[in-house]
Design a binder for these strands. Structure first.
Length: 617
DNA sequence: TTAGGGTTAG
């Protein structure tokens, strides 16, 4: 502190003639602070700022801290920073206020730089408030390495064992995808107390890392604990999000009843999570009801509905909703445009999709990024324009994670359309960047085999075996009347497989009768080639024929209940409804890596657990 | 006696 004081002392303002004595000084200071705390506009705050300088409080840390906080609240971070830089003796509150201000402005990187500066300055030590703010910045940036370093610093400080700091740590590890450490921190909190925020952080950590069962287990433990806290909108939104990632409609419905009983049904964030849950669990009609009941100017609510329609193959409706956003002057963001492109991709509106990509910056102020381009590559690839997809993919600069999505999309397109050259190129790119290595090896090996390169194919298989890249058997699951059935890829031991095959052949025949020129081998090869005029494409959108091929891969697999799915399909009045049902089945299809773990969880915990909470008084 | 943590679309 001394160094900073000496540096600034010659610039410190001379004592003001207004400061006559201690009593006057204290009264004036109290008046200023009181007025500052009441000030909600920039004009008044600037006036009080001028007054603070005039009457000689520019060196008073406490008063200047109030000023800084007022500017932070008004989102005037540059003014706040300027004030901070001119302070002769900033204390920990001054530092934390500016760090927190940068967080609020979304400038998390600057917040972290400031924390480092504070450390190097060495005159002020961080306290609980500072650590909580800094972990929040790490969360926003998903900076695991820096977060761990600061966590180590926390452990040797006197600030460990604080509920707020630990909650922010749980959140940070969750956002950085290290759920195990998040859980360890959460468990350690039992010694000094958890509150509704700590529990919510843990639920969110599980939900955001696709571990819905554990998220719901934590929610159940929270309700069974002795805490007097009740679930609030933050916690409920996360619980619903956990139900979404599980794709289990029954659980989602029970969670919805908890929301209704808690009185949070009209909360905008909760409503958005409900909408998303219903859409992901296959009930588009319920999603629409939630949307209509809560229609507001929220871009996230609109975007969720656009995504829901897009995923259900209703591209035209999704685009109409987007036009409504534009007409209402709600500013779309990059996710909204992703939804629009997704809608075009899943509905065969290829040229429309390209038009949106090329005009989104000019018309909507959203610059296309690799995620948008990947969506368009996927769209072109799905509809046979593989060369265009490849040409576009080559022009996009991506990091490793995004590259996996981009080249993964091209790999699928190459496989779907039998383009060995594209499969080879995409596989090589994926292997080089160490992404999706197993799938890429398999695809590349198959590509070599198709072109007669048996030696290359064999050596690749050996290489896979040596490096431990063994492909896991894919599986899917489906929920029927509160039970979950797991399906294994390639298992044809089903008694009803003949009947299923006959049924699907019949569906294909009826589809052709309605004028669709799909591939004659659509069912057997799981490929759909589209070469139809615009009108037919529109109809194809409604029939979800691309999904039929994929759904076939799901329902041909053996479980006793498969026959019940077929019976449900038969109850449909025509093949349009049947396709919709197949599509819904497909929407709930989730590939899991660890089947045994999932089975164990699904047996040990069912919707009754949530029901108990729903009925709790 | 100023400063701190958790939610929804992707």
């Amino acid at each position: 502190m001394k160094k900073r004081f000496l540096q600034n002392v010659r610039f410190a303002p001379a004592p003001s003639p207004f400061v006559q004595n201690d009593f006057f000084h204290l009264k004036t200071k109290a008046f200023l602070i009181h007025k500052l705390s009441e000030s909600t506009n920039l004009f008044l705050t600037s006036l009080l700022h001028t007054l603070t300088l005039k009457i000689g409080f520019a060196s008073d840390t406490f008063t200047v801290n109030h000023l800084i906080n007022r500017y932070v609240k008004l989102r005037e971070i540059n003014t706040a920073r300027k004030l901070f830089d001119e302070m002769p003796e900033p204390n920990v509150v001054s530092w934390t206020s500016v760090i927190s201000g940068y967080n609020d402005m979304g400038q998390s990187q600057t917040a972290l730089c400031m924390f480092q500066e504070m450390h190097e300055d060495g005159y002020v030590s961080p306290n609980e408030y500072t650590f909580a703010s800094v972990f929040k910045a790490c969360s926003a940036l998903a900076e695991l390495r820096i977060g761990k370093n600061i966590h180590a610093r926390l452990e040797i400080s006197r600030c460990r064992g604080n509920t707020v700091v630990s909650s922010s740590l749980v959140d940070m590890y969750g956002k950085c995808n290290d759920v195990e450490i998040a859980r360890r921190v959460f468990d350690s909190m039992i010694g000094y107390g958890r509150n509704v925020v700590s529990w919510t952080s843990m639920i969110t950590a599980y939900a955001q890392n696709a571990r819905g069962h554990e998220a719901i287990e934590i929610f159940r433990s929270f309700n069974a604990s002795s805490t007097s806290d009740r679930p609030n909108q933050f916690m409920l939104a996360s619980v619903i999000s956990a139900c979404s990632c599980l794709g289990r409609l029954q659980w989602g419905r029970v969670a919805h009843s908890v929301v209704t009983r808690s009185g949070y049904e009209s909360n905008n964030v909760v409503a958005t999570s409900l909408l998303d849950m219903y859409a992901k669990c296959g009930s588009l009609s319920c999603a629409e009801k939630i949307f209509l009941r809560n229609r507001s100017d929220s871009v996230i609510l609109y975007t969720s509905m656009i995504m829901a329609l897009a995923k259900h193959g209703l591209g035209k409706a999704a685009l109409e909703l987007f036009e409504e956003i534009v007409a209402k002057r709600i500013k779309p963001n990059y996710v909204t445009l992703l939804g629009v492109l997704h809608a075009c991709s899943h509905s065969g509106l290829v040229n429309k999709g390209l038009e949106y990509l090329n005009t989104m910056n000019e018309k909507h102020g959203v610059t296309p990024d690799p995620r948008h381009y990947t969506c368009v590559v996927d769209m072109l690839g799905r509809f046979g324009r593989v060369d265009e997809a490849y040409d576009l993919a080559k022009t996009i600069e991506v990091g490793a994670g995004q590259g996996a999505l981009l080249w993964g999309a091209l790999l699928s397109a190459g496989r779907l359309h039998g383009r060995v050259d594209i499969v080879g190129e995409a596989s090589k790119r994926l292997i080089q960047s160490n992404q999706q290595v197993t799938s890429a090896y398999v695809a590349l090996s198959n590509a070599y085999a198709v072109t007669g390169g048996w030696e290359d194919s064999e050596s690749l298989r050996l290489e896979m075996k040596r490096s431990g890249n063994v492909k896991e058997r894919a599986c899917s699951w489906i929920e029927i009347k509160d039970s979950v059935y797991v399906f294994h890829a390639g298992d044809l031991s089903c008694d009803e497989s003949g009947e299923i095959e006959r049924f699907l052949k019949d569906l294909e025949k009826r589809m052709k009768e309605r004028g669709h020129r799909g591939s004659s081998s659509m069912i057997t090869s799981s490929s759909v080639f589209v070469d139809v005029d615009e009108e037919a494409k529109e109809e194809m959108v409604n029939l979800h024929c691309e999904r039929l091929a994929l759904a076939y891969g799901l329902i041909r697999l053996p479980v006793r209940s498969t026959i019940r799915i077929i019976n449900n399909l038969r109850m449909c009045r025509d093949c349009h409804e049947a396709f919709k049902l197949i599509s819904e089945i497909f929407e709930r299809k989730i590939v899991v890596r660890d089947v045994n773990r999932y089975r164990f969880k699904s047996e040990s915990f069912d919707a009754k657990g949530l029901n108990e909470i729903a009925c709790k008084k």
